[in-house]
Amino acid sequence: MASAWYFLVLLGGVVLLGSSVQRLAGIGFGLVGAPGLVLLMGPVQGVALVNCGSVAISAVGLAATWRLVRLRTMLPLVAAAGVSVPLGAYVARALPEPVLLTGLGSLVTVAVLLVMRGVRVGGLYGTGGALAAGAVSGFMNSSAGIGGPALSLYAVNEGWSARDFVPNAQFYGLVVNVLSVFAKGVPRLTGSAWLLVAVTMTVGILLGGVIAARTPDHAARRVILGLALGGGLVTLAKGVWLLL
């Protein structure tokens, strides 16, 4: 009984934090939530819950911003992601847990560092850049629950503003996470756990909205990336420990 309550408390805390971040920045549920959920539930089930949660949060955010979505720009991104999502799902199922944890931790850590540095990648613009970013993002989203960094790098190279990025990231997150859920299925949780996820996610979305209204963009970005980097490093450390 104690272990069940411990699991629910940690699950609710991670979902609350991740959903608040997603509402604050347009992306981030996977970056912040995936490491904690992977450590709590295992790589496959944890990432599956990230995908399900990202569908719900992206849909809520998109309800108010869908008119700002650039459908013509997003088409090659989601098309390329649709091709690579099944590969990511296969890799997540096929690799042993220590290897998968090490890989997921490494992906999160490297991706966050790239975004922190504002790296510009030559050629990552236009239709060709969208196809490349979509393919990488779809694979990472399905295998690790972190499709956002590749999309962020593409947006940086295209010169998108924050106003451009948030609605398009929400549209992309909705489509690609739906594809990821179809490829892998939903996580195995009890009814009480699903209810907790729904409640904490709703509270997180509302809380993130309040924080967003009072927080400068640069400050929110530093907090989000710091949390994501810490989570990636912890996941990487656990994977390496299990390997050794």
Rank of each mutant, 00 (worst) to 15 (best):
A56C: 13
G46R: 01
G33D: 11
G26D: 07
L225F: 15
K184P: 00
V91H: 00
A162S: 15
L195W: 10
S19W: 04
G123M: 00
A144G: 15
F171G: 12
G185W: 02
V197M: 09
G12L: 05
R70T: 00
M140I: 07
L11I: 07
R67L: 02
S19A: 07
S137F: 01
A220R: 09
N168G: 00
P43R: 06
V110C: 01
L243Q: 06
L39Y: 05
L151W: 02
C52Y: 10
G28H: 11
D164F: 03
L114P: 07
L174W: 09
L233E: 08
L77D: 08
A135Y: 01
D217K: 12
V166P: 13
T127S: 10
V156D: 07
M140W: 09
L131P: 13
L31N: 11
L11S: 05
G231S: 04
L174T: 13
L196K: 08
A25C: 08
P187G: 04
G123Y: 01
S54C: 04
A132D: 01
G12S: 07
V55P: 14
I146L: 08
N141Q: 15
V115H: 14
L49V: 12
G134E: 01
L207R: 10
A144P: 15
A135T: 11
A48E: 01
L189M: 12
V83D: 03
S20E: 10
L75T: 14
A237V: 10
Q22H: 14
V156L: 15
V99K: 00
W66R: 13
A4F: 08
L49W: 06
A34D: 06
L62C: 05
A135G: 14
T200N: 02
L95Y: 00
L37P: 13
V119H: 12
L37T: 08
G118P: 08
V234K: 05
G231V: 06
A111E: 10
R188G: 09
R163D: 06
I224Y: 01
A133H: 00
T235P: 01
G61V: 08
V203T: 14
V119W: 12
V176S: 11
R120K: 07
V156W: 07
S192N: 03
R163T: 11
A219P: 03
Q170D: 03
S137Y: 00
V203P: 14
V55T: 12
V156F: 15
V69S: 09
S20G: 15
L16A: 05
A130Y: 04
A150F: 02
L244V: 15
I57G: 03
A59Q: 05
I205K: 01
